[in-house]
Design a protein around this nucleic acid. Structure first.
Length: 333
DNA sequence: CGACTTTGACCAGCGC
DNA sequence: GCGCTGGTCAAAGTCG
């Protein structure tokens, strides 16, 4: 069970417990009960019968309440533990991001290099992310299989690899790089990935970020405020594509397109475009930050842990997204 | 009443 | 030039 599911579960149990408390609590709290009690006073004989039935009902609900309380307590403990794990992971993530940022911005590095970054919790064990990355840097040119072995050992990897054809730039319009965050700890269900495309023409730069996320709602909550300004049915996809504009600050050029995946309707494909001209609200998503040409910052975000993304800067924008499962771990996706 | 959504119209880019 | 398609505009409607 994921953290958000547990939190939802806790909320549900709290509500049930509250309902039960009302049922077994002061009679006066329930207007219907009050009315019945009034009738009881008028007719003592029938009133005694009702009290007996209420007593039996209260015994049952008290037992249920105890069970629910115990369950809630257990979930609370699990939530505490999971929060600790997330805190620890984020600390390691920050270290990793700093090193990754240095790495990806290295002037000597070819632009068309694909970079993979995998993050795993690895059974909640404490990982030495920073030292591992240092170690990894020494062997990044060596056999990829060794890297994969390291992945298994430590659960964290930074896996740069030469890349020119996978995401394709046949026309030479831009260069893409792809960063995948892939948690191997299936119980947490984290999967995240980022693909970046850098425009070769510096005058024609326009950041684009595509995010695939499993989401039930019409759009995912990314922390920013959006206004819908259009909707179109794109060719090849029966699901309409919605167009949103950022309304956090007047004149913010950032826009996003939201469309359901044709193959899997539960997957929401969100494409962000542009650079925010305002500070992001607390809780705003990493994707929005990414549009500000800051890949490493995106990697830092707490929210990224449940996403698989593709980031394009002036990329083809052809709607061809990275394949694979996606699942948000946002509180309210 | 203001903010937001809906939806048809319009426009630009692209391929033929 | 024409048609197709994606993206945007803007008026009308809706909602809180």
């Amino acid at each position: 069970m994921s953290l958000e599911e547990q939190i939802i579960d806790e909320t549900r149990i709290r509500k049930m417990a509250t309902d039960l408390s009302l049922e077994i609590g002061d009679d006066g709290e329930d207007p219907e009960q009050e009315r019945k009690e009034g009738e009881e006073e008028e007719d003592k004989q029938t009133g005694e019968g009702d009290q007996q039935r209420n007593g039996e009902k209260n015994k049952m609900t008290e037992e249920e309440l105890c069970l629910l309380k115990a369950e809630m307590h257990q979930i609370k403990e699990e939530n505490k533990f999971l929060k600790k794990v997330i805190d620890q992971t984020m600390k390691e993530y920050y270290n990793l991001q700093a090193k990754f940022s240095n790495y990806i911005c290295h002037p000597g590095q070819p632009k068309d290099q694909e970079v993979f970054l995998s993050l795993g919790l690895n059974g909640f064990q404490e990982t030495k992310a920073s030292s591992y990355i240092d170690e990894y840097m020494k062997v990044c040119d060596s056999d990829q299989s060794e890297t994969r072995r390291d992945d298994r050992d430590l659960g964290l990897s930074l896996r740069p690899q030469s890349h020119a054809s996978l995401l394709g730039d046949e026309k030479g319009k831009g260069v893409q790089s792809w960063v995948q965050l892939d948690n191997k700890h299936q119980t947490m269900g984290f999967t995240a990935g980022i693909t970046t495309t850098q425009s070769i023409n510096p005058t024609n730069r326009k950041a684009r970020v595509s995010v695939r996320a499993r989401c039930q709602g019409p759009t995912m909550n990314d922390g920013c405020q959006w206004r819908k300004y259009g909707q179109k049915v794109a060719k090849g996809n029966p699901c309409p594509r919605a167009y949103y504009r950022c309304t956090v600050a007047p004149g913010c050029p950032v826009r996003k397109q939201v469309q359901r995946c044709r193959e899997d309707m539960s997957i929401l494909i969100t494409t962000y475009e542009g650079v925010h001209n305002h500070p992001l609200p607390v809780g705003a998503s990493a994707m929005a930050s990414t549009t500000a040409d800051n890949t490493s910052y995106m990697l830092l975000s707490n929210h990224i842990t449940g996403t698989r993304m593709k980031l394009n800067e002036d990329g083809p924008g052809d709607g061809s997204f990275a394949s694979g499962k996606a699942g948000w771990n946002f509180r309210d996706c």
